[in-house]
């Protein structure tokens, strides 16, 4: 039995009984606060890139980084929910693209009011998420396989539906591209898309940490059989997670239209990998049951900071890709090491 976690605080000897090395103690802390390591990495990388190039810390550049992060950051909220249940969603990018094509075409072609078009886009995202959820629960398909299949299906549907054509922002009602507009917040221009992304994080964080549903999501990801025996309906929780993810992906579609000032069937389907990258760098375990959306936000920002900082340093895009790859491997190795605590 460990004296560290259970000794009553009143016992003055407890501190001296802790014979773990500083490294092990650090591991214990990182284990308890999964968002701590990405927070440290983000601060360090901002400092380093700021020293390498003074333009990096300019308000305009910081604003640009957040805008570059907004779409993947929103996809990553949905991805976090699914990975917390020990699943993975390869279709997030294609769901977003399909939803954005539906919104753009409905609003620009058929004279449907913009708000209604957005609702139809939301329904599209939720329906796609619901399909993933049904495949995972009713057919008991592994999420990796189910969403690998729907990734292709949704990608093809988006291309078929749009006839492969991009809808330009100018041809859409202003509400659809509203997410690309910026408003000044204390000297920095923040886009409304970024604010919507932050709202998604706030809502998801609240739901995960302060509602019974959130506890059930963690319990299901942690140990499905234990959750079942504790009286939790596994399939209900899983379906609700995929539906919620679908709604968030529809939000990402709106943000993407504003950011690109267009809806294109060819841009974004590959963001599934970027969203997984953000989640993993953010300290959420691929084994499920451990992690937070705040870690994911940090993870998405870390990727954004690295890409931006390296390109300001004049390095080729290939080096950004290389750096992100190394980050992922380091993050997953760190997770493996942290998880060795008292297992």
């Amino acid at each position: 039995m460990s004296a560290t976690t259970t000794a009553p605080p009143a016992d003055p000897a407890a501190e001296f009984l802790d014979r773990r090395s500083p490294l092990e103690r650090a591991r214990g802390v990182l284990h308890r606060y999964p968002a701590l390591s990405p927070a440290i990495v983000l601060v360090l990388s901002v400092v380093v890139f700021g020293m390498l190039n003074e333009r990096f810390l300019a308000p305009a550049n910081l604003s640009l980084i957040t805008q570059q992060v907004a779409v993947v950051g929103t996809l990553a909220v949905a991805q976090t929910l699914i990975i917390l249940t020990a699943g993975i969603d390869l279709s997030v990018g294609s769901v977003m693209v399909l939803s954005s094509m539906v919104v753009a075409q409905v609003a620009s072609g058929s004279g449907v009011p913009a708000a209604l078009a957005l609702l139809i886009g939301l329904a599209t995202g939720v329906a796609c998420g619901g399909l993933n959820g049904l495949l995972v629960t009713r057919l008991s398909l592994p999420p990796f396989i189910a969403t690998l299949g729907t990734f292709s299906v949704f990608t093809a549907l988006a291309l078929l539906y749009s006839h492969g054509a991009t809808v330009r922002g100018g041809d859409m009602p202003a509400l659809l591209t509203w997410t690309g507009t910026t408003i000044p917040v204390g000297g920095v221009r923040v886009s409304t898309g970024v604010m919507l992304m932050l709202a998604a994080y706030l809502v998801a964080a609240y739901a995960l940490s302060r509602t019974a549903w959130g506890k059930h999501v963690y319990a299901v990801g942690d140990d499905k059989e234990a959750a079942r025996l504790s009286g939790i309906s596994i399939n209900r929780v899983l379906i609700s997670v995929y539906l919620a993810a679908g709604a968030i992906l529809a939000l990402a579609a709106w943000i993407q239209i504003g950011r690109a000032n267009a809806a294109s069937p060819n841009v974004g389907v590959d963001m599934n990998l970027d969203s997984i990258t953000a989640v993993v760098i953010g300290g959420t375990s691929l084994f499920g049951g451990r992690g937070t959306v705040w870690g994911t936000l940090l993870g998405a920002l870390i990727v954004g900071v690295f890409r931006n900082g390296l390109s300001l340093a004049g390095l080729d895009v290939l080096y950004q890709t290389l750096a992100v790859g190394i980050l992922v491997i380091v993050a997953v190795s760190l997770d493996q090491w942290i998880r060795k605590v008292r297992r």
Partner: peptide
């Protein structure tokens, strides 16, 4: 098997 959720 105890049926507890370890991370909670």
């Amino acid at each position: 098997t105890l049926a507890v959720a370890p991370s909670l």
